[in-house]
């Protein structure tokens, strides 16, 4: 079957690839473009491990039809770190031992980034709601919530 050309912005850089019919965005990111940060968990939009930001809003890449991202902006955990170092969320997760097996962590980070980008000073309840769609099977939710609140209090970075 014919592939469809797709051009979009991935973590601030232009990305161009050809996608199979009905391919999901997660497969395109991981297999097509080598960005292994979003994870395949359930494949049915239940676990949140594949969460990425599309035009700043959290989306589940495993149930996103890849060709629908033409011209849009995609952010993954791979794009969080910059020349200044780890993103405050990454630093807070590391400092606060907010990862056990780590499989849910990229999805948690992106769900948290979507929250902090929109609401820099969330309440604990708002943090819990923001990660409600992200399953941690190690059940380490409390350190994750604490880390997101810690990151929210960290000094703002520019850019």
């Amino acid at each position: 079957m014919a592939k469809t050309p797709v051009t979009f912005t991935l973590n601030g850089r232009e990305a161009a690839t050809f996608v199979d019919p009905a391919a999901n965005l997660l497969d395109v990111l991981r297999r097509g473009l080598g960005d292994l940060s979003p994870k395949y968990g359930c494949g049915q939009g239940t676990c949140g491990a594949c969460t990425v930001l599309i035009d700043g809003e959290p989306h589940l890449s495993c149930v996103t039809l890849a060709e629908t991202i033409e011209g849009r902006t995609v952010e993954t955990t791979n794009g969080l770190q910059d020349s200044a170092g780890l993103h405050p969320l990454q630093q807070a997760f590391m400092d606060g031992f907010a990862a056990q097996c780590g499989y849910c962590t990229p999805g948690m980070l992106m769900a948290a980034k979507a929250l902090l980008d929109r609401n820099p000073s969330p309440s604990r309840e708002e943090v819990i709601d923001a990660i409600a769609g992200n399953v941690c099977r190690c059940t380490g939710y409390e350190p994750i919530v604490d880390a997101i609140l810690t990151a929210a209090r960290a000094p703002r970075r520019t850019g």
Binding site: P21, A22, N24, G43, Q44, G45, L60, C62, V63, T64, L65, T68
Partner: peptide, 26 residues
């Protein structure tokens, strides 16, 4: 018919053979 994708793409991922065509209207 695919709208948000949360139902149809789930079925694609799980190999649903009940459909061979996705229709969408952006």
């Amino acid at each position: 018919f695919l709208a948000g994708g949360t139902l149809v793409m789930r079925d694609v991922n799980y190999g649903d053979q009940g459909f061979d065509r996705i229709v969408r209207v952006p």
